[in-house]
Design a protein around this nucleic acid. Structure first.
Lengths: 356, 356
DNA sequence: GATTCGAGTCGAAACGATTCGACCCCTCGT
DNA sequence: ACGAGGGGTCGAATCGTTTCGACTCGAATC
């Protein structure tokens, strides 16, 4: 394979067709009048030289647009696709964008060793799943003058925010548990900061947390259970949920939480598994609530009580917002509501002798 | 927002720092010696002007590389993410690529109204899930001189092929059914051609099919059941499977197939549902086999008999191959094996009065 | 003390297109 | 018949870098 035998250029095609490069350009871009005969001649020359059309990079440089929308994700590429929430989100975004003939560039967030979001040739960007370390990416995009929208990021100046009502959703779940008689509830949070440390919650860590989503969801629970404690996980995954579940469910029944609110369904599944591992029955001994409403049926043989978020609608909204940003407009913020979907992992609080 | 207030350029930074643009370039690219004092001066100037680093497009144009790998998929963007096989594949690809600091550009295949694969600024490409209409994309990439690898595409000249052994896998499933006494088996194929027509199989259509995967899988079945007929689906989806299932399972028991081999798990699920809809028991009245080995547990309350393919390994292999292609090398072809995973949707053929 | 060497810097030439203004010539209107 | 208008074409400038060869200057070499 003669790999890099230089490809023909527009200039070469023009020369062969006996026209100026500018005229040949007109033929391919379609902007501007060209005589039918000339067009024919240029197209023929292109075919003869096996010219595949204008070079995208050169075209982008000159035009100032690349036709690519960046999707900045928190994790490494590999992990982005492993989370069903991200996938559903991308699905929604893609739906809006493919109509506009735009491509989707998946970019890992700044600072994890991958390429800098600013190093990609993109016209606009969407920040998704960027919970812990959004600042670098935002700065990078701003410096580059790339317009962007945020999906569940901290409120950012001049940036359209597409959010779900995390606080109210979690408050609703907490109210359910309160109604069922639970008093000792624990929360398993998403990673709180770039270090992704697994550790018990404490006020200092919470205050220092860079994860807007984790803080909001926690705050929602606290509106009902002001003293709720818990632990933070290192990622949204089943095995992380198990680790967190073990640390919460070990110890005597009198101090054990009777309900656990997980900040993702995957974590929730892990907690259920950890409970079963310990011989605890769900929901008789401990209730578990998840978040997301993704299909976890494959992982769990029962219906998880969860907060179902309209994730595809969120994606579509983000897609529309970034399209607006591209036009220089600013789409209004959105705050989508979740639905509390009661499954079979929640039930009345167990009789608690320590309260008698 | 003053959207397009032109951003500072490298030249502006250089001017401010009192050095030549070429020297400033050296500072950012790191290639070539620069005095510490000069570097400091340039960096300071950059900071003062809020310069975010060299423009990626201009850099790409000059360097001839963009740091982006294209993933060409059959469907529209939106549909790409809806198929769990694609997602798992992307996951595997991303794993290999993120180490190389490359980004992933998802490009819908040529000819569906989206952007042409050649219109994207990519260094190399991977063709995935391109079953029906790969020719245009291949031609486009070739004309552009973009190296690429194919995942389950037709064998292509000079292109590394990452395949699974579709033929042998389907033959193995067919042997299982033969062993169970089945004689009348039908196949539900993936789309056979760009038209994605739903229709009974016939030799002419099969010969004209542009889908390598569909043909191979069908051929595998035919090694055991040379006369197996069936229908083609319009896409790999549960509802398509139901449509296909209905068309196969209507009619008297004597002519009805006793087993159906679907070319994807999603189709298989649809067929099981169609059977149940008709009051047929699976597997007592009809056996169903899928393909892929993805988690369909959420869709079906039983374990599907299926051909599990090593889809993440396939993705990683594709990632490694494209990295090699980027270096101008050609990675060897791979032919990965599938595993016949027997679930509870297959069983002995029903007693068949027409054979007595 | 002349010579070589290399670190550091610079200017100019790509990279491959698009776009703007100028120009030509033919047609149409009056 | 003459000016206006517009379709069609062209040349030149531009987009923002990187890279190549050349040049300078101080230090090391013999």
């Amino acid at each position: 394979m003669e790999e890099r035998a230089s490809r023909p250029t527009l200039a070469a095609v023009a020369r062969r067709a006996g026209v100026a490069a500018s005229t040949a350009s007109l033929v391919f871009s379609g902007s501007g009048p060209v005589a039918e005969a000339t067009r024919e001649r240029v197209l023929t020359a292109a075919r003869e030289l096996d010219y595949g059309g204008p070079d995208p990079t050169a075209r982008s440089l000159r035009r100032g647009r690349s036709g690519v929308i960046g999707v900045v994700t928190e994790d490494r590429l590999a992990e982005t696709f492993r989370d069903p929430v991200n996938v559903a989100l991308l699905d929604g975004i893609g739906e809006e964008l493919s109509d506009a003939r735009l491509s989707l560039l998946v970019i890992p967030m700044a600072g994890v060793g991958g390429p800098d979001p600013g190093d990609a040739a993109i016209d606009a960007a969407i920040l998704i799943g960027c919970t812990t370390n959004v600042a670098d990416s935002v700065a990078s995009l701003r410096r580059r003058g790339v317009p962007f929208v945020g999906v569940e990021t901290e409120p950012l100046d001049g940036v359209t925010a597409i959010d779900i009502d995390n606080r109210e959703a979690c408050a609703a779940a907490a109210r359910l548990l309160a109604r069922l008689g639970h008093r000792r509830v624990a929360v398993v949070t998403l990673p709180l900061d770039p270090g992704r440390r697994r550790a018990p919650l404490d006020p200092a860590r919470e205050a220092a947390s860079t994860s807007f989503v984790a803080r909001e969801r926690l705050a929602g629970v606290r509106t009902v259970f002001p003293d709720a404690g818990g632990v933070s996980a290192a990622s949204s995954a089943v095995d992380e949920g198990m680790i967190a579940g073990r640390s919460l469910l070990d110890g005597p029944a009198a101090s054990r939480p009777t309900a656990v609110l997980a900040q993702s369904d995957l974590l929730a599944v892990g907690i259920v598994l950890a409970a079963e591992e310990r011989g605890l029955r769900v929901p008789e001994d401990v209730s578990v609530v998840g978040f997301d409403g993704i299909a976890v049926d494959g992982l769990l043989s029962r219906a998880l009580t969860t907060l179902a978020q309209p994730v595809e609608e969120k994606g579509r909204a983000a897609g529309r917002a970034v399209l607006a940003a591209l036009r220089g407009e600013r789409a209004p913020d959105r705050l989508l509501q979740c639905e509390l979907r009661v499954g079979s992992t929640t039930g009345p609080a167990p009789d608690d002798t320590s309260f008698r």
